[in-house]
Design a protein around this nucleic acid. Structure first.
Lengths: 131, 131
DNA sequence: TTCCTTGCAAATCGTTTGCATAATG
DNA sequence: CATTATGCAAACGATTTGCAAGGAA
């Protein structure tokens, strides 16, 4: 389980840390490729998987078919725009208490939850204004 | 967008209504195939997609790589066992109020959310007892 | 007859993996 | 030197789709 550093892994993480929009592996690939043209998609996937296993980044399975990655590993919730599909960080009060609500009357053990909010992002909500 | 009835679609929905365990397309396929050996996987997928678009069934994207289907379209939450991967319906109080929590301070519009709870199901929790 | 639906197979898409080579400690 | 990481391409699993033939209205 020991690992050696590699320039590609460092580039991938560095790039991810500059982004707030939770890019997909493909986006990471095409961008990192600008600095290192020979990097392969497989390497990008391997490192994204490794980094998320190490807890250095977060893998988001939004259910839209492609995984998204987030270098912000602090606990926070996400919002997905129904129109433009943008993934946005939400700054909100903790809702971890829903675990207790779920646990009430349940025979097993609730250890956690995953929640995604949907709707119109600021930009798309603005455009659909009929004011 | 008008549609005609078909024996295969009816079989698929009927089967789904007998299940509480949120089967995958593959499970639906192998089971329905017992009654109609010539049915194809493509037809199963087409109908599952159509039925969920019509709102007659629910498609669950649990993020485990395969979609699950649920004939129970009433609002309810799901639990996924970290050990045996079973998908279980939760009977719990509504947590829809988390939408308001998310909306506070958010410039866009929150229209809804999707939540999945994780942990140990009753059976797996039992087995790991060290009592 | 019209046109929706099927079965079949090929095609997609995102992601993973085997292998020989290159880079790291 | 012992190993881990890489590039490349092939392999994968789930789902979709094109097409000619079958079935419902």
């Amino acid at each position: 389980m020991t690992h050696k550093r590699s320039r590609q892994r460092e580039l991938i993480k560095a790039f991810l840390m500059t982004r707030r929009d939770h890019p997909t592996a493909d986006v990471v690939y095409s961008r990192v490729r600008q600095e290192m043209p020979n990097i392969s998609l497989g390497t990008v996937y391997r490192n994204l998987t490794l980094l998320s296993e190490l807890g250095e980044i977060q893998r988001l399975r939004l259910g839209d078919g492609t995984d998204h990655f987030d270098a912000d590993t602090s606990p926070h919730n996400h919002f997905i725009c129904n129109h433009c599909k943008a993934v946005i960080d939400l700054e909100m009060e903790s809702i971890d208490s829903i675990d207790k609500v779920a646990a009430a009357g349940f025979q097993g053990e609730i250890e956690g939850h995953v929640t995604y909010f949907y709707g119109s992002c600021p930009a798309c909500a603005e455009h659909s204004q009929i004011s």
